[in-house]
Design a protein around this nucleic acid. Structure first.
Lengths: 345, 345
DNA sequence: TTTGAGTAAACAAACGATTGCGTATCTTTT
DNA sequence: AAAAGATACGCAATCGTTTGTTTACTCAAA
């Protein structure tokens, strides 16, 4: 059973031409009903399945999209991937997945590999230290559209989906300020990330609108490693102005910061109130989760990104060279954690 | 720049035949040095990249493997996937990834899609309720080798990598028995999973070897949902023989069980000592992690599975029809959690 | 000088499917 | 009855690459 049936085989057995078989299978109008039936019958019997490799070669498209993410083990990204997988499955696209593991070098390698594989398009969330976007720019020459999501480059001529982290941060800050906090620390992410910049903007706007003075020493940035976060946290704790609240770049950073604080006998969410981003499911089981976390809707972001890409791929055929860049920004939502675990501890 | 250079183009510009160009690029011995140099020079200038779609079509192999997993959000599987990704990247294979989300129906769909995509081989961890393996058996007819890992079907003629859960359970049980526990509960997984059966075997062997009587009412099984686990846990807690220790199918089950117990004011790891499987990293931040968890080495399993598959794919060319099934079983290791978090709570 | 070996490159088929164009047969119209 | 149109199908090229088989030529040994 090694060899699958081909169109040519069917044609020979039926004593007709391959083109007729092809057209019959595609329900082409110029093929008579009799022939159509005969072809379909035999195709069914022989268990014919179109050779997709041949089709892709002939059509010069692969029906494949590449997805590049920093880390699947982060629940945000695995959720986003699930969305992309589901959406593209429905469109009969397959996915090549590559993890950059937050390395710019690896990211470039993966882009190369995907280009060589001739993916039709790309969905990307960039590595945390990617500052050079040449490897993505280069794809324009090959007519491979790229849609970024969540971790997007801070340049203008791209398609993207993200969450509004500025307004999100504003929400988080307003919550803290209303609760009476005045000295609010922030552990931000790498500065090249647009999302970091937005968080910073939100922080500043919130302070100014209250109005409170913006103290730059209260805002530090972590490279998102445990060590980086601990360093930032150490610095924050050693300030003369003692913070009573902290906004962390995401739940992982928050957990590391919380861990660090607990080891120094700081009472979590009492001495210092923690707020973060991502709202990961595991927080539910976590010892001391932040009191609130900004939901960033990974599934929706993945869905939207795929939607945009599909649009671009369909448009490409009608060859409209005037490209307008699709930009979708979702509003994030401040989610409060069930305090069950906290109170029973 | 839309159109990439092809071999034919190079051939025309150089006034030689396409086959010569092809052979020159592959360093074939029958091509003279002069021609080789000229071809390579021009290929470089034109930025030639082989059209992989054409090659795959011509060679009737796709240099692609399919990976089917239950859930990427489980850290075990995302770690295993990373291993598969890394290993196959080195062999110039790309990966189609599909999540079954623990649905047998979805699993079958994905297998269909992968078959249609003509993947060269498959690496699979089956869905928790998959009991029928026809969709995998069917692949033999198409000469698509399948390597299972971790969640493997309980049938004999397959290639697989897994962890020895029987000896692992034995280790866990011996630890508990040595600590003085005599009434040990177990929340096992779905019975069709080989790993569940192995856990059961280990449990029974441990009891018998001590020797203690095996009480079947102490072993329940969960469908791995929160509800299923809570039901099992409720049943265990209502027994007359009060358990002092519990072995949970994996860390997620353990967390749900622990949660359930805490809500009933049971002191975790005091009234009941918890042990589980998987040793997920997030346990570190978790409120009350089990005291120990059996490390199942996801990365190694993924590596080994890829290794086996690559072997099978290479062997296929030399056409040795006599297949012996590769089976690798790793020993699991009982990892104790740092108790820092527990004591400070 | 003939034979043989060795080198360098061209020719052509093949992989499987799609598609523009041509053509034969049949039906309808005037 | 002849022209026009519709219907049903075949022919052949094409996508880019690989590979088995010639072919042409050079050089050396018999």
């Amino acid at each position: 059973m090694k060899n699958l049936a081909t169109i040519t085989e069917i044609a020979q057995k039926l004593q007709i031409s391959a083109s007729t078989v092809s057209r019959a299978l595609h329900d082409h109008h110029s093929i008579g009903l009799r022939t159509k039936m005969r072809v379909r019958q035999l195709a069914g019997e022989l268990n014919y399945e179109p050779n997709q490799a041949a089709i892709r070669f002939q059509q010069r498209r692969t029906a494949t999209i590449g997805v590049i993410l920093p880390e699947l083990s982060e629940s945000f990204f695995s959720a986003a991937f699930s969305a992309i997988e589901d959406s593209s499955f429905n469109c009969n696209y397959s996915i090549f997945l590559g993890q950059s593991h937050d390395s710019e070098v690896k990211e470039k390698q993966i882009v190369e590999a995907m280009k060589a594989r001739r993916v039709d398009g790309l969905i990307v969330s960039i590595a945390k230290n990617t500052t050079n976007y040449d490897h993505f720019e280069m794809l324009k020459k090959y007519d491979i559209p790229v849609v970024f999501f969540d971790r997007i480059p801070n340049i203008s001529d791209i398609h993207y989906v993200n969450c509004n982290m500025e307004s999100g941060t504003l929400k988080a800050m307003n919550f803290l300020l209303k609760s009476g906090h005045r000295i609010i620390g922030m552990i931000n992410g790498p500065e090249n990330l647009f999302a970091s910049q937005q968080r910073m903007e939100g922080y500043i706007k919130a302070m100014k609108s209250h109005p409170l003075k913006f103290d730059p020493s209260l805002v530090l940035s972590s490279d998102l490693t445990k060590e980086g976060t601990e360093k930032a946290m150490g610095q924050l704790l050693s300030l003369k102005r003692k913070i009573t609240a902290l906004i962390a770049f995401n739940d992982y950073v928050a957990l590391d910061a919380i861990q660090f604080a607990r080891e120094r006998n700081i009472r979590i969410n009492e001495d210092i109130t923690f707020v973060s981003y991502s709202n990961m499911p595991m927080s539910y089981h976590t010892a001391c989760p932040p009191v609130a976390s900004l939901e960033q809707f990974p599934y929706q972001q993945g869905e939207k990104a795929t939607e945009i890409l599909m649009e671009l791929l369909n448009k490409k055929e009608s060859e409209s060279p005037i490209v307008s860049y699709k930009k979708i920004t979702l509003e994030s939502h401040l989610a409060f954690h069930k305090s069950r675990l906290i109170t029973t501890v």
